[in-house]
Amino acid sequence: MNSQEAALFQDKKIGFFIYLGVEAIMFAVLFATYFIFTPAAKGPYPTEVFEARTVLLSSFFLLSSSGTLLIAEKGIEKKNQTKVIVGLGATLLCAFAFLGLEIHEFYTFVQEGYGITTSIFLASFYVLVGLHAAHVAFGIGWMIVLFLHYYRPKVSYSLYMEKQIIFSYYWHFVDVVWVFIILLVYLPYL
């Protein structure tokens, strides 16, 4: 990265951090919504709904995906192609596993009669955890696009590097939000 690219990258980094701040406020408001309406006066109590096994399993995949992404970050720094591919690939697989489990969880809930209209607690649960799942899904798409970039002959290394670093900020952020979801949404009612 030369000094001009570095200047542009610094702009982008700051801009993206501010954007993540916006995202953080969004999630904060949704967490507040969840606190206000949970447990709801009517409808099922959260402990009846939540199931520890799925949460543990999906957390395992998502949290380790942050770790695998670190490998890819190391790889890009050291220009080590294997590390980049393995790291990103593992992250992608973890993300798919997480999203699959999440869909399965929602599906089970709905099967059990715990839909979004069932109670205000479930509504605030779905809008929060659902938005997070949408972020994971978006991240999956982003990662696939990153792969395409990586295999493109024309792209300059510094540009790819920038793209991947920005992505990793996003992904770690989504992970941190999940940690808060575990701590604040699930844990009190498991």
């Binding site: 030369n2 000094s3 001009q4 690219e5 542009l8 696009v145 970039h149 024309k154 792209v155 300059s156 290394y157 510094s158 540009l159 920038e162 793209k163």
Partner: peptide, 17 residues
């Protein structure tokens, strides 16, 4: 993401270095 205006700019020599 594939038609980024930076595509043609990045990876060149730095004129000031």
């Amino acid at each position: 993401s594939f038609t980024d205006e930076r595509e043609s700019f990045y990876g060149k020599e730095d004129p000031y270095e």
